[in-house]
Amino acid sequence: MLRDTTSKVVLFGGIAIILLGAIMPNWIVNQLMFGFSRALAILGLLVLWRTGLVSFGHAFYFGLGAYTVAIVDIQLGVTDVFVRLFGGAIIAGIAGFIIGFIMRNYRDIFFAMLNTAISMVLYGIIVKTESLGSTDGFAISLPTIFGIAPETKYPLFIIITMIAMISALLINFYLKTTVGRLTTPIRDNEIRVEYLGFSVAHAIHLKYTISAVLAGGAGALMAMSLGQVDPDSMINWTVSGELVFITILSGPGNVIAPFIGSLVFEVLRTYAFELAPQAWQLIVGATFLTVIFFLPGGIWSLIAKLGRKKS
C-alpha cells in the first residue's frame, strides 16, 4: 500500500515536518498542530465529497470528539493522549453510524441541511446545559503520553503529525479499494451502481461513518492542542461552514490536499485577524467567494497544473 507516489510523499513529507518541528518556533508548531488536526476532518469530508455529498454539519462530530476529550478529562481524569483521541473518534464514529441510517437516504442539499440540523441540536443542548460548560466550555489539562507529562508541545506535535500521516495513508488506500472506488459512479448515477450489484446505501453509510470517525479524531486532537473547548468554536454552524470551505479550498484531487488547505486556512485566518481585527471576517469571506469562483478545483488544481507542466 505504500507503492504509489502519494503515499511516499505523505511518508517522507510527514517525517520531514516532524524533524523541522524541532527547530521551528512555537507558533508555527502550533499552527501546524491546529492545521493537521483540522485536516483530519477535511479528509473525511473529502471522502464524502467524492461521492457528491457535502455535509454542512460535520461540526457535530468534530465537537463530539472535542467534548469527549473534555468530559473524560474532567469526569474521569483521563489524560492519556491516545485514550482521549480514540475515545473521541470512537464516540463520534458510533454517533455517525447511528445517524448514518437516516443520512444514507438523503442526497444533495437535503443531506447537507439535515446534518446542519443535527449539529444544531447538539449545539443547543451544550450551550444550555451548565454541567456541560454552557457557552463557556471547559479548559482541558495537558495530555500525557504513556503516563509521562511532556515539558513542551513537541511530543504532541509528533503524535498529531503521525496520526495525520497514518490517516492519509489509510484513506489513500481505501479510495483504491472497490468500495472506495464507488465514489464518482454514485455521484453520477446511483441506479446504475445498484444494477451492478452494489448497495449504494451501504457504501454511503460506510463513507459517512468514516468521515464521522475522522471528524471526531480531529476534534479530539484540536481540543488537546488548544487546551480548551467551547461550543461556538467547536459545534456552531459556522464551524461546519469553515470545514466545508477548507474542503473546497483544498480540492478533492488527493489526500494530501486537505493538509495543505488546512494550513493555508490557518495562516489566512491568523494574518487576517492580525491585519484587520475588526474586519477579518470580510477577508475570510472574500477569500471564500474568490476560491468558489476562480479556483473551483481548489489549491490542489494549482498543484496538479504545475505537475502536468513538469511531466
Binding site: A279, L282, G285, A286, F288, L289
Partner: peptide, 8 residues
C-alpha cells in the same frame, strides 16, 4: 462567504 462579508 457573503454573510461574513456583509457582517463586516
Amino acid at each position: 462567504g457573503l454573510f461574513l462579508v456583509l457582517e463586516d
